Amino acid sequence: MYYELATLTTRLFTTAKATEGIQAWVQAAEARGQLLGCWYSDIGALNQILVLRGFNDEAELLAERRRALLSSDPFHCGALLTGLEMHSYAGFPWMEPPKPGSYGPVYEVRTYQVKTGGLQPTLDAWKAALPARNEISPCLLAMYALDGTPRFTHFWPAASLNERSAARADAVKQGVWPPKGGPDWLTSDMQSQIFMPTAISPLK
């Protein structure tokens, strides 16, 4: 599956109103794709809304990208925005698309840049290691960027920050994570944020 990950930076105290616009945008008659998640940032860069949508093919994704780029009111909350970024991704090929449900409410979203030529070795390492890692706490989605700097983004839901920290420590202690050989292909450019689901998010 193909994905769009949009980051909407909003004016102070406008998250709820912006979310109403986002819901109308993704439910419009001309809209394509499926809303998977809509979260607000809680730790890290603040005043951000993260919108994740899934698409059956690249044509659908690009059609939605053009709709936003050509709109005078993207996501029906343009007047509330101080910044807008939209990025295209493909899911790791063996992973099933996430299904709506309650997995959080704490969502850690990590983005790692990869060295030149490092994407396929990264995919191979993750494919080998992720089943054991998922036994401790599941990775909801991992996807690699189709534009910009070579990188991949992954989502880790947890019931609490403490649960998240304990799971990561346990995975390292058991030796199942990080994937063997995986870090060899990463640069030092890594980002992590904590997000919480908004009222319209299918992923809770």
Rank of each mutant, 00 (worst) to 15 (best):
E4L: 06
A6S: 12
T10W: 02
L12Q: 10
L12M: 14
F13Y: 14
T14V: 02
T14M: 08
A16G: 10
A18C: 06
I22F: 05
A24F: 12
W25I: 04
Q27C: 15
A31C: 09
R32F: 09
G33F: 01
G37K: 02
C38I: 01
Y40C: 02
S41Y: 06
D42P: 06
G44H: 10
A45G: 08
A45S: 13
Q48W: 03
I49Q: 08
V51H: 02
F55G: 01
N56Y: 14
E60Q: 15
L61H: 06
L61C: 04
A63F: 11
A68W: 05
L69Y: 14
P74H: 03
T82F: 07
S88C: 11
P93V: 05
W94N: 07
E96W: 07
P98G: 01
P100Y: 04
S102R: 15
Y103N: 00
P105L: 00
P105F: 04
E108I: 00
E108H: 02
E108T: 01
Q113L: 14
V114Q: 04
K115I: 12
G118C: 10
Q120W: 13
P121K: 00
T122H: 11
D124W: 12
A125M: 07
W126K: 08
A132K: 13
A132E: 13
I136Q: 10
C139F: 15
Y144P: 02
L146A: 11
G148P: 05
T149A: 13
R151M: 09
F152R: 03
H154R: 06
H154E: 07
F155R: 02
W156N: 05
W156L: 07
A159Q: 15
A159M: 10
L161F: 12
N162P: 12
N162E: 15
R164S: 15
A166M: 14
A167Y: 07
R168N: 09
G175I: 08
P183F: 07
L186C: 09
L186S: 08
T187R: 04
T187L: 08
S188A: 15
M190Y: 14
T198L: 01
